[in-house]
Amino acid sequence: MFAAAHFQTALQLVQTYRGEVPFAHFLKAYFSQHKKHGSRDRKQISQCCYAFFRMGHAIPDIPPERRMLMGLFFSATEPNPLLEALSPEWNAAAGLALAEKIGLSGLTPEALTIFPWTNLLSDPIDSQAFSISHLVQPKLFIRIRPGHHEQVIHRLEEKWIPYTEPYPFAIALPNGYNAANDFSLNREIVVQDLSSQKTGAALKLIPRETYQQPSFRIWDACAASGGKSMLTLDQFPQATLTVSDIRNSILDNLATRFKEAGIRRYTRIEADLSVTAPDLPQQQLIIADLPCTGSGTWARTPEQLCFFDPAAIGRFAELQRSISRNILLRLASGGFFLYITCSAFRAENEDNVLWLQQHFPLEVVHQEVIGGYTEQADSMFFSLMRLT
Rank of each mutant, 00 (worst) to 15 (best):
T199Q: 08
A172I: 04
P166K: 03
L205K: 07
A179I: 10
S195Q: 05
G200T: 02
Y167F: 15
A170L: 07
I161H: 11
N178T: 15
T164R: 13
R208Q: 06
L173N: 02
Q213M: 11
V191P: 00
T164A: 06
K204G: 12
W160L: 14
Q192H: 12
Y167V: 14
I171L: 09
N186F: 05
L203F: 11
G200W: 01
R208E: 13
E157K: 12
N175L: 15
P162Y: 04
E209G: 04
P214F: 06
N186H: 10
A170P: 15
P214I: 05
A202P: 00
L205R: 07
A202Q: 01
D182S: 15
Y177K: 05
G200N: 01
E165V: 13
K159D: 11
Y163F: 11
Y177L: 09
A179H: 06
A180N: 12
P174K: 14
K198R: 13
S184Y: 13
N175Y: 15
L194A: 01
Q197W: 03
Y211R: 01
S195C: 07
I171V: 13
Y211A: 00
P214D: 10
E188S: 03
R208V: 12
Y163V: 07
P168C: 07
T164D: 05
D193C: 06
A202L: 04
G176T: 12
F169D: 09
L205Y: 05
S196V: 02
K198S: 05
T164H: 12
A179F: 02
W160M: 14
L203W: 08
Q192G: 06
P214C: 03
A179T: 08
L185D: 11
L173H: 02
K204A: 09
F183R: 02
K198M: 10
P162C: 03
I171M: 09
N181T: 04
I206F: 05
P214G: 01
P174W: 15
R208N: 10
Q213V: 15
I206R: 01
D193Y: 11
Q192I: 06
I161G: 10
I189N: 00
E165Q: 12
N178P: 00
P214R: 05
Q197S: 00
N181S: 14
A172N: 10
W160V: 13
W160G: 14
L156P: 00
K159R: 14
A170N: 12
L194Q: 00
I189Q: 03
L185A: 04
L203M: 01
I171S: 10
N181C: 12
F183K: 00
R187C: 15
E209S: 09
L156Y: 01
I171W: 06
S184D: 14
I171T: 08
E158R: 09
D193N: 08
D193M: 10
G176M: 04
A179E: 08
I206V: 05
T164S: 11
N186A: 00
V190S: 09
F183L: 07
Y177C: 11
Y163R: 05
E165G: 03
E188V: 08
A180V: 06
Q197D: 01
P162G: 04
A172H: 07
T199G: 01
I206N: 02
D193W: 11
I161M: 10
E209D: 12
A170G: 15
N178C: 14
V191E: 03
V191H: 03
E158T: 04
L173G: 03
E157G: 12
I189S: 02
D182E: 13
F183D: 02
D182H: 13
N186Y: 04
I206Q: 01
F183H: 05
Q197Y: 00
G200K: 00
